[in-house]
């Protein structure tokens, strides 16, 4: 893969049953890697959780992951950190 790079992503999503699976299922469905994953409720609002995950791919894949994550109904924000 050209311009393959590692990146870290923050995804804020509703702290509901099944939402973590929606995120991981999206990665497997689209063929993206998850290298590490950490999830915890937001300190300021436990109705939401933040996933910090690391993945890899080129610029295009990075963009695609963000765009696809943003389409998930339970996702409030997805960004590269």
């Amino acid at each position: 893969m050209k311009n393959n790079e590692n990146f870290t992503m923050s995804v804020v999503l509703k702290n509901k049953f099944g939402t973590l699976m929606r995120v991981t299922s999206l990665f497997s469905k689209r063929g993206y890697n998850i290298n590490t994953l950490h999830v915890a409720p937001l300190v300021e609002n436990n109705e939401y959780s933040r996933i910090i995950l690391t993945s890899n791919g080129d610029q295009n894949i990075k963009e695609q992951i963000l765009r696809q994550l943003e389409k998930l109904v339970d996702v409030r924000e997805a960004k590269i950190i």
Binding site: F17, G18, M21, S25, K29, V73, D74
Partner: peptide, 14 residues
Amino acid sequence: IAGITMPVTKHNYI
């Protein structure tokens, strides 16, 4: 069925 249809729905609920 929610688990099964997750990748083929815009969204689903139990």
